[in-house]
Write a protein that binds this DNA or RNA. Structure first.
Length: 829
DNA sequence: GCAAGGTC
């Protein structure tokens, strides 16, 4: 039997399909899909199925000096037992093994890992390697007709990366975490890719903080030819002889303004026309896809998650690619034709009308995967969610755009003179829509300037002088960050978006676009001071050079890792000498992220703290001497804002809870407001009214939440939820069933149209019923395996989860991603 | 429990 091993299940199925000419059947070996025909079996791995780690004696952080990890053994252990088992079971009976993993460095390493698993159980079976740059009939067949050998040097280059990343990452992560005494889930994480990325964000923030705005002025006036009026801007020639619009001196601006005010006309000095070609964009690689989806409002992680789903369903090609040149074997005309009878039919036909269909090309041409493009499988719109459809349409239209004509713009520039001061107007008109006709995602707004002639006298009216200030640099948005990472060569197409997610999870960045926390600044500072290499892109470029040397046989894995160990030893000499200092610095920063301001009771500092049960509250740093506390809302993760409350000098708090994120404000104000607000009694308590005379009242709690609760609390804890926002009005209408008044909620915007909440008991019952139905519906869509995992974690109803719960859940339940939980929640909405 | 890289 011949055993073929691929990098992923999808590739296994498609290769089996090609080699068997559609005759392969699907088998399950140890729960893993295996494709079978004639004397052949084909199994797909799931990327790396083994991973590197230190031996177990190094696993206790407190027992091991982090510097010891530099010289610890690095061992490989299976991480996907089921696939390893299936592979080895098949390998025992194999007479021949063919490694058909992806054609890149990581693919060579994954292939070598498979080779070693095969060797463990079958010492003699010949193992060959095939390489093809796309899974097409021709390429696959010719690769299999002429197999090659595994490139062990190339695989060793990948192994060196694994070892060095683990060694540096683990040793430094443990060192910083131990120094700051930050263990458990809030450890302080450092790594070759994440730390330089974090430095990018921190450096930008430093620029913003150091930025001092300059005042300047800009002047405008309206010019009219015949009945057409257009806006013109004042400009002058600066010291370097360049055209400038910003006037840096107020006196100069006012002088020019006075001239414009006294002038009643401007004489046209010059008119120039130019046509400009606006070329269609290159095919999508991962980064450019993320950028385009970002402009539609998708986060990088969400865009990739949707793309992966579309890929798995067969509607688009593999979304993780650096390639921006379509491969030779892609028949663009045939692919376009597949859209003829779809909603994209008109656009496809307009392109098919062209005799010449030459696609655009980007700079990067790699061989592992094609640029992202749609397949000939057209989805049924009802099978896709709205987001999925929107992203799919983007991919289709981008493919169209790469085959479309350039657009043509006509620029018209008019310069006029008003008593010695210059005014200009730049008009632009889209004369040929070109690719914009099929790709409507770019701005094509025009600016109309009428046809004028040299010497024309234009009426000048309404001169304006606008005072402005220079703006600080913009923060990196997620997609710009990913583009910068790509240009620096850090991370890979498959990991860059995960790195950003990781920075959020680790408490290094918050909000979108991401802002660094105080902790992030402290970690970057500590690294810059004692281990600069960790936050420099130099670490990656040196590693790349070393990996190339290993792949080309100029260096060995052992030489490269030994060099790296020596450098890391020296880093640790310095770190260890300053351990106390580093720890203090990190601890102070961690505290600063949680600091609210002065304690009203003792003057010490109020901090956001976490109780043993995991809930957040505000407590005094002077505890246990000072026992002052304030509650915080029960939903979400607290984030201390820059804004402070004037009355108490305390920072405001925002509760991050995904879609339900809200600003709680100053916790002391919230508590005082609750103390001052009177409970409004609305009826008898259904639980204890008859027996003890308990009554239901609308209450405002110190934590900011409101509820309908029993006046005998805490003896009776009967309660019903109320919305956090809006004024509640008690009406004269009573619910017949519960004998309680109907409630109205005025939520600011429209006083004429309040939310009719009704009887609070009926409302709560309806709410529970809705949640139950959503939960069931959503669970239906989850699939049996995941549902089982959720049940194991004690969760029966996804609809009940808050988004903060969802994140925790994703962490707890292995194999469930935060993204997918969010998706279920979106469905539950 | 640490990294980064595959894949789901």
């Amino acid at each position: 039997m011949e055993l073929i091993v691929t990098e992923k299940n999808n590739a296994a199925r498609r290769i089996a399909d090609i080699l068997s000419e559609g005759g392969a059947s699907t088998d399950s070996v140890a729960g893993v899909n295996v494709y079978k025909w004639g004397g052949r079996r084909c199994i797909g791995l799931s990327g790396h199925v083994v991973g590197v780690d230190f031996p177990p004696e190094y696993s206790d952080w407190r027992d091991v000096e982090p510097a010891e990890l530099v010289h610890a053994d690095v061992v490989k252990e299976p991480t996907q037992e089921d696939i390893v088992n299936a592979l080895q079971r098949l390998a025992r009976e194999a007479d021949d093994v063919v490694i058909a993993t992806d054609y890149d460095r990581e693919g060579e390493l994954i292939g070598k890992e498979a080779y070693e698993l095969v060797r463990d159980v079958n010492e003699d079976v010949p193992v060959k390697r095939v390489r093809f740059s796309s899974i097409t009939d021709n390429e696959v067949r010719s690769a299999f007709a002429d197999p090659d050998d595994i490139d062990f040097d190339l695989a060793a280059a990948g192994e060196a990366r694994q070892i060095i990343d683990l060694m540096w990452g683990a040793a430094l992560t443990r060192f910083l975490s131990l120094s700051a005494r930050q263990m458990g889930e809030d450890f302080i994480s450092v790594g070759r890719v994440q730390s330089p990325t974090l430095k990018l964000i921190v450096d930008k923030e430093r620029e913003i903080e150091a930025f001092e705005p300059d005042d300047y002025w800009e002047l405008f006036a309206d010019l009219t030819k015949d009945d057409t009026t257009f806006e013109a801007q004042y400009f002058y020639e600066d010291e370097d002889g360049n055209e400038a619009e910003r006037v840096w001196d107020e006196g100069d601006a006012e002088a020019a303004f006075a001239t414009l005010q006294s002038a009643s006309e401007a004489i046209v000095q010059s008119v120039s026309r130019r046509t400009r070609s606006d070329d269609p964009p290159a095919p999508f690689n991962t980064t450019q896809f993320i950028r385009a989806a970002g402009s539609l409002g998708y986060s990088a992680g969400r865009a990739m998650s949707i793309a992966e789903d579309l890929y798995t369903a067969g509607y688009i090609t593999y979304p993780r690619t650096d390639n921006t040149v379509y491969p030779d074997d892609l028949d663009e005309r045939e692919l376009l034709a597949a859209f003829e009878n779809t909603v994209f039919g008109d656009d496809a036909e307009s392109l098919l009308d062209h005799d010449d269909l030459t696609p655009t090309e980007g700079d990067e041409e790699t061989t592992d995967h094609p640029p992202i493009h749609p397949t000939t499988d057209f989805p049924n719109r009802n099978d896709l969610s709205e987001d999925e459809w929107e992203v799919y349409e983007l991919v289709v239209r981008r493919f169209f755009a790469t085959l479309a004509e350039p657009a043509v713009w006509e620029h018209l520039r008019v310069v006029a003179d008003a008593d010695g001061e210059s005014l200009k107007a730049n008009g632009k008109r889209l004369v040929e829509r070109g690719y914009h006709a099929v790709y409507p995602y770019f701005n094509t707004s025009e600016n109309y300037v009428p046809d004028v002639d040299e010497g024309d006298a234009l009426a000048l009216a309404d001169p304006r002088m606008e005072a402005k200030q220079t703006q600080p640099p913009r923060r990196y948005g997620q997609s710009r960050l990913i583009e910068t990472m790509e240009s620096m060569g850090i991370g890979t197409k498959s990991t860059r978006h995960n790195t950003i997610e990781k920075l959020y999870d680790r408490g290094y960045i918050e909000d979108n676009p991401p802002r660094p926390t105080t902790l992030a600044k402290a970690v970057v500072e500590a690294a810059e001071e004692y281990a600069d290499l960790v936050v420099s892109e130099g670490m990656t470029s040196e590693l790349e050079a070393d990996m190339t040397a290993i792949a080309e046989g100029e260096k060995t894995l052992d030489e490269v890792t030994a060099e790296s160990r020596e450098i890391l030893d020296r880093v640790f000499d310095e770190l260890t000498a300053s351990r106390g200092e580093i720890g203090d610095h990190l601890r102070n920063s961690l505290k600063a992220d949680k600091t609210l301001g002065p304690c009203p009771e003792c003057g010490d500092t109020l901090l956001v703290r976490r109780s043993r049960t995991g809930s957040y509250f505000v407590g005094c740093d002077g505890y246990p001497e000072c026992r002052f506390t304030l509650p915080l809302p029960s939903t979400g993760e607290p984030l201390v804002l820059d804004e402070t409350c004037e009355e108490h000098d305390l920072h405001e708090v925002k509760m991050l809870a995904g879609r339900n994120t809200f600003v709680h404000g100053c916790p002391l104000c919230a508590a005082e407001e609750a103390d001052e607000s009177e409970d409004r009694v609305i009826g008898a308590c259904p639980e204890c009214g008859e027996e003890h005379g308990g009554e239901l009242a609308i209450k405002q709690l110190q934590s900011g939440s409101r509820l309908v609760g029993c006046t005998r609390y805490p003896d009776c804890d009967y309660s019903l939820p109320l919305p956090r926002r809006g004024d509640i009005e008690v009406t004269d209408e009573y619910c017949e069933e519960h004998d309680l008044p109907e409630l109205l909620v005025f939520d600011g915007e429209d006083d004429d149209d309040p939310w009719e909440l009704g009887c609070p008991i009926c409302n709560y019952e309806e709410y529970q019923e809705r949640q139950r139905q959503k939960g069931l519906e959503v669970l239906d869509g989850i699939g049996p395996k995941t549902a089982e995992k959720l049940e194991d974690a004690g969760i029966e109803d996804v609809g009940d989860l808050t988004e903060a719960d969802a994140d925790a859940l994703a962490e707890e339940v292995s194999g469930v991603s935060a993204d997918s939980v969010r998706e279920w929640q979106a469905k539950a909405d």
